[in-house]
Design a protein around this nucleic acid. Structure first.
Lengths: 136, 136
DNA sequence: ATAGCTGCAAATGCTTTGCAAGGCC
DNA sequence: GGCCTTGCAAAGCATTTGCAGCTAT
């Protein structure tokens, strides 16, 4: 799944998002190709390094808008900050609790049998599997 | 697993924790019996309601000390705050993203086949399964 | 034109820290 | 007595918010 600049515009437009400079630039960084895991601070820093002018508040807003639009997935794994994943398909993660590195579990080798019924009045939204690892 | 006051003292002592008033009182609330999910703020409020004088800083310290001592387990599920679980055995959770309620998955009806090898140089520490639910 | 965005700074909320005073062993 | 613990207030951080000025459509 690789996106060049026109594809980025189509992608945003197809989700009903206005084509602002900041969204295009951030989307360019995020969806350039390959799966990415980012935090707001990381993406802001990367934007700055690329010569883009974006405020951190806008980075946060944009990450949330993209998430609402289904382009990103939030990952709650790290107590100190929120991660966003460009891979929105069903998959799971390794989280290195020492280095704070987040990596995908390759080739979906995790199967979960979800036999239990959810609490009354609720429906299952999403199943998250996080395998916490530490350096040997 | 029910703990009366003497048991609480034994429990703390057995983990090398000094028997201070605050630890005894907080442990009394936590390990009174039955599994509990608490946040620092909840436990502090509960302590206050029970007439105990404890600062929030001490509640935080105590929760971390108990966690290090293996009496509690941290749960990263809620981006806004850290939950602690008195059930330290292997089990998983439902998290209601609307009400922020955290409940155990009854009778361990979740099986995870962890086929994937962890990233090189790391070992698996813990597998967390969180099933996010929303009101129907 | 106008509804939606952006940027800044300030505010928020959870959590940690520094340090003096107090308590356990 | 000596080391660990507590409490308070202040600091720290990630994140959100208010709002004035812009901008895409």
């Amino acid at each position: 799944m690789h996106h060049n600049d026109e594809h980025i515009d189509e992608l945003l437009a197809s989700r009903g998002l206005r084509l602002t400079r900041q969204r295009r630039q951030l989307a360019g960084l995020l969806f350039r190709g390959g799966d990415r895991h980012v935090t707001a601070e990381m993406l802001g820093r990367e934007a700055k390094l690329s010569g883009f002018r974006v405020s951190l508040a806008t980075v946060y807003n944009t990450l949330h808008q993209f998430t609402r639009a289904g382009l990103l997935r939030r990952i709650n794994v790290d107590p100190a900050r929120t991660w966003f994943d460009t891979n929105t398909t069903v998959h799971h993660h390794f989280f290195n609790t020492r280095s704070l590195e987040l990596t995908d579990i390759p080739q979906e080798r995790v199967s979960v049998d979800v036999l239990p019924a959810p609490p009354v009045g609720t429906t299952i939204d999403h199943v998250d599997v996080v395998i916490r690892v530490t350096p040997r």
